[in-house]
Design a protein around this nucleic acid. Sequence first.
DNA 1: CTGTTAGCGCTTTCAA
DNA 2: TTGAAAGCGCTAACAG
Lengths: 339, 339
Amino acid sequence: MTSIRKVSAIAGVSIATVSRALKTPEQVSPGTRQKVLDAVKEAGYRPNWLATSVKTGKSKSIVVLVPNLLNAFFQRIIEGIESAAQECGYTVLLGDTQGRKTLENEYASMVLTSRADGLIQLDHCFPFSDNDAELARSIPMVSVGERIESQHHYPFIHLDNYSAGRALAHHLISYGHVRFGAIAGQIQSQIYRDRLSGFKSVLAEENIDFPDSMLVGGSYTIEEGIRGVNELMKHKKPPTAIFCFNDDIAIGAIHQLRSLNYKVPKDVSVVGFDNIRVSEFMHPPLTTIDQPAYEMGVKAVEMLYRMMHNQELLRTREIMPFTLLERHSSGPINRSTSQ
Amino acid sequence: MTSIRKVSAIAGVSIATVSRALKTPEQVSPGTRQKVLDAVKEAGYRPNWLATSVKTGKSKSIVVLVPNLLNAFFQRIIEGIESAAQECGYTVLLGDTQGRKTLENEYASMVLTSRADGLIQLDHCFPFSDNDAELARSIPMVSVGERIESQHHYPFIHLDNYSAGRALAHHLISYGHVRFGAIAGQIQSQIYRDRLSGFKSVLAEENIDFPDSMLVGGSYTIEEGIRGVNELMKHKKPPTAIFCFNDDIAIGAIHQLRSLNYKVPKDVSVVGFDNIRVSEFMHPPLTTIDQPAYEMGVKAVEMLYRMMHNQELLRTREIMPFTLLERHSSGPINRSTSQ
DNA sequence: CTGTTAGCGCTTTCAA
DNA sequence: TTGAAAGCGCTAACAG
């Protein structure tokens, strides 16, 4: 723990000069600057980041709340966030909340204790505890992917999930499917509502029935895909096409369909959502919606940056474009087996 | 930014009392304690973490250096680290180094600037810059999975990679294979040397030839698996069994073998390493080595904790057990096609 | 260009 | 049990 004082002693200058030589070298004569630099080296000195931060009142850090680090989609967003944050001199504190409220509260409160200057939420909920809610009102916060549910409105970056839902429905209908199943992830979120209603809207337009019993699920995991398929294929008239709300679910679904001796896509078409890295290398490769996750992360940092520096936000909501990737997990309906 | 001063004013006590009421309530009379608590609520006060940390000289944080957050194996280690860290009141600062030296140096230096009290390295290299090397000598640091290469020795937790390499070789040989290929990840690491020499040692014992041309690769990615297969299958006598140094490589390899019209495992057996979540749900499910990644993370924190508190380390090296999971990506040699 | 001095928000002696 | 005061390591305003 060698401090600035020791350096100033070695260099024979005041501590202020040491500080200046390090932070604003142009304000120091070349001669003293060198003396200071030498002393720094001799003392093995590194400025105490904590002290600097208390003094300036800024931590130059942002917290990122991730529901699940294992989710490949979030990982890509995080990459975007980290690279953009680095760009503007901010450190990212990753908080893996594991969907637990207390953990989320704890990480979120870092921004109330000056440990971070702003917050990016990847989930849909307001991350602060009831206790902190009032204090958090004026905190710089944006969400990406989801939209934060709170009476106070925070900016957000998201996909046009409604249209993506429609695109998937159109894609499957164009292959002749009329019996659909869906395995959802987290219920109770904007994403859920948008994807589902987009999907349903097309079916309604085409006069295709979509009974409630064909909608199952509840979490974005491989296991949910397995459970979902088990449930859906129990029906006397099982679906010939399944809309999985993310790629993890689709992976589980395809795996389980195979276990039940259904061929994908011959017997059942499966589509996913997110386009995680492994989707392309599955067998069969997954038809899915590609989200510009990386860019969404970058955008989030840009917005947050403006908020943290009290600059006007150009817009309070950013909608990103998606791409439907038609691969081989979906295909024409098999008339012989689908009666 | 409401400070302790405001609270003391509201409560009509000194700032020292406020501090005590919050950190060591038993040193304050119940009456004043309540007054303080009320004032805290009224003021919307949260102690400034930065200030507390400068004062105490401890950040109660640890940095974790991850070569690649996308790697599912590391994720599991991280889970273990986070849960154990939480347990003992430490915050985890995740540093995704993306294999870049400068990023790594930067994150590592956090522990020199009092931003963190210790460091866990998931890669094999000494993470500090040449400049910082001297200072870093006495820093609490452990590595997991890999072993840090430096003249000064740091404790580490790892797998018996040599034996695991042997186990895989035995497994494949028992199926009758005699022509092997291997696709490695990061060359120049203890892991690489151990897995390879374990694997080779069995081949040698069995008098099976393993020419250098059958060893390819260089990074732990799906793409490397694809490249590797392309290279290996070019030989006049291509391998009938391929040892991939992690599951990502195996995923790429299987994908590419399929593209080249080889059946797995009928024509070529493939084995991986790590047992990431998706391995079980691949088609075919991957034969691989399961590492107790979570437990390794926990162990790492335990060791680091002792180091940060100047307690004796029970041992300086922890070897964890592995399990060979025989699934369906490996199988008996196909005598008809392997001539 | 450099030094003195006053803090940042907090913890922790030391006295009372 | 409480308060006054010193000080953690640093930055920044002010003088010179």
